[in-house]
Nucleic acid binder design. Structure first.
Length: 475
RNA sequence: GCCCCGGUAGUAUAGCCCGGUCAAGUAUGCCGGCCUCUCGAGCCGGAGACCCGGGUUCAAAUCCCGGCCGGGGCACCA
């Protein structure tokens, strides 16, 4: 069994590519087969050199290991050879119709006069294409298909066309490029691909690609189609994302609200979570699916929980002064199960706690400063309060809260991404909330990419080495 | 407009091909409880679905027909 990953290096890799890649990888692993990474880079105008690596990195990151790699652009001579053979055998012809006319005739199912020209003329035109005698759009090579087929892709599609634009890898060495269907058909056969697992927008092309191969005497693969993967409130279409970036609505391709691999990685999703997600929730059915992020987040949470240290972060802080409190240094576990060691915090009589907690406990109420002391609230003012430390251990029923000493508090910002679009398709103005507050000093020991769970707030990833800025992963 | 393909709880899936064991399983989310010095983890319990209408059959989520709804394709892009 041989499967393949066929990315077009023309934009950033997103979660859909990762999921689809995982499906191909997992299947070939299951059957002990081979996997190809093959770049579909036959449109010189769209391909950008930096995206080749973006896919290699992305696939590697999710844990995919491929057995072979190539670029379609490496096989230009092969495409030329097969194209010529098709003309010689009367299976392809040169056509000088302009784009508009070709489109109309194909829609109407009508053959043009070029189709019935003599073979020598087609051969001569083909040679002319290769030698640079024609400019872009003047001639193209078409497959002898079926102009009356209900499947419109079979109506003599163009298989080779002239492109006057340098290719990022090949420079201006080639001016005649294969179209997608021609390149894929040949490459899948050449690579020995036995199973094509892909999204269903290609379904109509199966018949065409099989036809091309039958003309060339090549074997066909088995096709398995499934719907594209969408996630709630998150656009995946490149042009849509590009528009958002250009409008300045989002920061870039790794904006944490996005579903690009760069974004979910930055946000703290681990690759194992994606793998488990595929096994558990992804089915190769053709029904429409819009996954909710919760499904992925729940898996991710379980995976990172045991190895993520806990720290204190107070959002919506209020200054709490404690009457009669002796400064102490407390040592608290980095993880409730105790296997991650401890951290220390020196606490004095002035602390930040969540104002909301104070309000909910109310004057006269008692709350527990976790691992520090019980406190009776004496007064609550505007963003400040006065309390009295009580001796003794925590008692059942007390609200246990996080706290940060004023003198060592680190001002922290947490970027909390939400859905970019609401269910009605309207842009979500609050898609990125910036939560400000104070965190314990120990957060400064965290490096960019390190995760923490801010207790009673959620899992976060440090986003910058210079500043204490975090990205919210999930609850 | 033409051509394909789908429709199981809020979400994603299992079951459908080979009709009965499905008064429909699982996960997540939600609600309630237990546990816990986090609103995290863990444990227990609860509510929640076969798009609609016909047909075939002793029996239909499963087979057939129609309708409705949804998705995709109709480039010298991939």
């Amino acid at each position: 069994m041989v499967t393949r990953l066929p990315p077009e290096p023309s934009g950033f890799m997103h979660i859909g590519h990762a999921l689809s890649g995982l499906l191909n990888y997992l299947y070939k692993e299951m059957y002990g087969g081979k996997l190809w990474l093959r770049f579909e880079d036959t449109d010189p105008r769209k391909v950008r050199p930096e995206y080749y690596d973006s896919y290699r990195d992305g696939y590697s990151w999710v844990g995919i290991r491929w057995d072979h790699e190539k670029n379609n652009s490496d096989d230009m001579e092969l495409f030329y050879e097969h194209a010529r053979r098709l003309i010689e055998e009367g299976k392809a012809y040169a056509c000088t119709c302009d784009r508009e006319r070709m489109r109309r005739l194909r829609a109407e199912g009508v053959e043009c006069e070029h189709r019935s020209r003599e073979r020598e003329w087609h051969l001569e035109m083909w040679d002319g294409m290769l030698s640079g005698r024609f400019g872009e759009g003047e001639v193209s090579l078409r497959l002898m298909g079926d102009m009356r087929s209900a499947n419109t892709t079979l109506r003599d599609p163009v298989i080779m066309r002239i492109v006057d634009h340098p290719h990022p890898l090949k420079g201006d060495r080639y001016h005649v490029w294969p179209t997608y269907d021609f390149a894929v058909s040949i490459e899948d056969a050449v690579c020995g691909v036995t199973h094509v697992l892909r999204t269903s927008e290609f379904a109509l092309r199966n018949e065409l690609q099989d036809l091309i191969r039958s003309y060339l005497g090549m074997p066909n693969p088995t096709y398995v189609e499934y719907e594209r993967f969408e996630f709630e409130g998150t656009p995946v279409a490149r042009r849509e994302i590009r528009a958002l970036i250009e409008k300045g609505v989002i920061g870039g391709w790794d904006d944490p609200r996005l579903a690009t691999v760069a974004a979910i990685r930055r946000r703290g999703i681990v690759p194992e979570a994606l793998r488990e997600f595929v096994l558990r929730y992804v089915a190769m059915t053709q029904s429409r699916k819009v996954y909710s992020w919760e499904l992925l987040h729940a898996i991710n949470r379980r995976l990172i929980d045991g190895t993520t240290p806990r720290m204190f972060f107070v959002d919506g802080p209020a200054l709490l002064k404690l009457r009669g409190f002796e400064p102490v240094e407390v040592e608290l576990p980095l993880h409730p199960e105790g296997h991650m060691g401890t951290r220390k915090i020196r606490a004095s009589g002035e602390l930040y706690v969540r104002f909301q907690d104070l309000l909910e406990v109310g004057v006269g109420g008692v709350l527990r400063l976790k691992h520090l002391a019980n406190v009776r609230v004496l007064e609550i003012g505007d963003g400040r309060a006065l309390g009295e430390a009580l001796p003794g251990p925590p008692e059942p029923g007390m609200r246990v809260v996080q706290w940060v000493p004023v003198e060592s508090a680190v001002p922290v910002r947490v970027l909390v991404p939400g859905p970019l679009f609401g269910p009605d398709g309207a842009f979500n103005e609050e898609s990125l909330r910036v939560v400000e507050g104070y965190a314990e000093r120990n957060v400064l020991n965290l490096k960019r990419g390190d995760r923490v769970q801010f207790e009673r707030f959620g899992y976060c990833v440090r986003d910058s080495d210079e500043e204490p800025v975090f990205v919210f992963t999930h609850r």
